[in-house]
């Protein structure tokens, strides 16, 4: 406790006990930390290490130069960014109204909707990509339905392009987006909404000026999560893009499978890692700024 008190025998004992306890607590976390070190820290460190050596085995920026100068690499980065951004927009556009609707339902019914949203979690990414392939293919269910309804004469190219890639990614990210957003909406005092209603605000105005601003931190957090996770997608673009959508992860895998290109694969990996980290930091900063600005307003 405070240093002014004479340290009796009891207190030295207590202090030692506390130290032992903290060391023990750390020791309990140690097995997990070892696994993380073996599977994440060392491998990622290895990527940094490999990316720093050129073809002749000397230290050089060669790999990064190749990645930054090649037009094909630039396009891959832009594609990855665009696909991720479209996925975020789709998630926000669909997920926010849906979460607001579920939030307005009585708890029992809302619970059913949450369970339905969680359902796809139990289906593997591969299975879902594969199912979309079947639905979207030229003679698939959707094209057949469109033709039967007379909406189109020839089957549309729905699979193996940007549309199917973003659709598949949105399908995977929506539950991950909706849950935190719904959590944030749950924390909004319903009295606020009723107060706005009682003071004569229209439903639209209440949503715009009261509900959405209060839900904003959750929405932003969800959007950042979706964006960062989308940057690393591999399976869905590889299957649903059908080679027409090249993202960073696919390029890394390809550089690696022709073994000569370990350096380039590593450099791409390091860039993806830095990109992801920077965006995460930026997003967190933006969120803090918004929250900070709001606190400032409250005090004013």
């Amino acid at each position: 406790m405070s240093a002014a008190l004479p340290l009796g025998e009891n207190q030295t004992e207590l202090a030692r006990d506390a130290r032992v306890e903290r060391a023990l607590a750390f020791a309990l976390a140690l097995p997990c930390l070892i696994v993380v070190a073996l599977c994440v820290l060392i491998p990622c460190g290895w990527l940094f290490y490999l990316s720093a050596f050129g073809n002749d085995g000397s230290l050089s920026w060669e790999n990064y130069e190749r990645v930054s100068s090649g037009a094909s690499y630039g396009r891959i980065f832009i594609t990855t960014f665009e696909v991720s951004l479209l996925t975020v927009l789709a998630c926000v556009g669909i997920g926010v109204p849906f979460a607001a609707f579920v939030n307005s339902l009585p708890p029992r019914v809302a619970g059913l909707f949450v369970a339905a949203v969680l359902l796809p979690f139990w289906t593997s990414l591969l299975v879902r990509a594969y199912a979309w392939l079947v639905l979207l293919q030229r003679n698939g269910l959707i094209n057949t339905a469109l033709i039967d309804m007379g909406l189109t004469e020839a089957p549309l190219d729905l699979a193996f392009n940007w549309f199917s890639t973003v659709l598949g990614m949105t399908h995977i990210m929506l539950p991950i987006f909706i849950l935190p957003v719904l959590g944030a909406m749950r924390n909004i005092d319903p009295g606020m909404i009723r107060a706005a209603a009682s003071m004569g605000a229209s439903w639209g105005l209440t949503m715009r000026r009261v509900f959405l601003p209060l839900a904003a931190p959750g929405i932003i957090a969800g959007a950042i999560l979706v964006f960062v996770m989308s940057l690393g997608f591999y399976v869905t673009p590889a299957i649903l893009g059908g080679g027409n959508v090249q993202v960073i992860s696919m390029r890394i895998a390809r550089s690696l499978s022709n073994f000569s290109n370990w350096g380039a694969a590593s450099a791409l990996g390091v860039l993806l890692l830095l990109f992801t980290g920077a965006l995460l930091a930026l997003g967190l900063m933006a969120q803090r700024l918004i929250l900070g600005a709001r606190k400032g307003q409250d005090h004013a």
């Binding site: 491998p43 890394i252 895998a253 990996g269 993806l272 992801t276």
Partner: peptide, 21 residues
């Protein structure tokens, strides 16, 4: 933060890195 790291880092990086190791 360290323990949740494997969920944050793109799977492809963990895969490629572990491949090397």
């Amino acid at each position: 933060g360290l323990i949740v790291l494997p969920a944050v880092i793109p799977a492809i990086l963990i895969a490629v890195g572990m491949f090397f190791v």
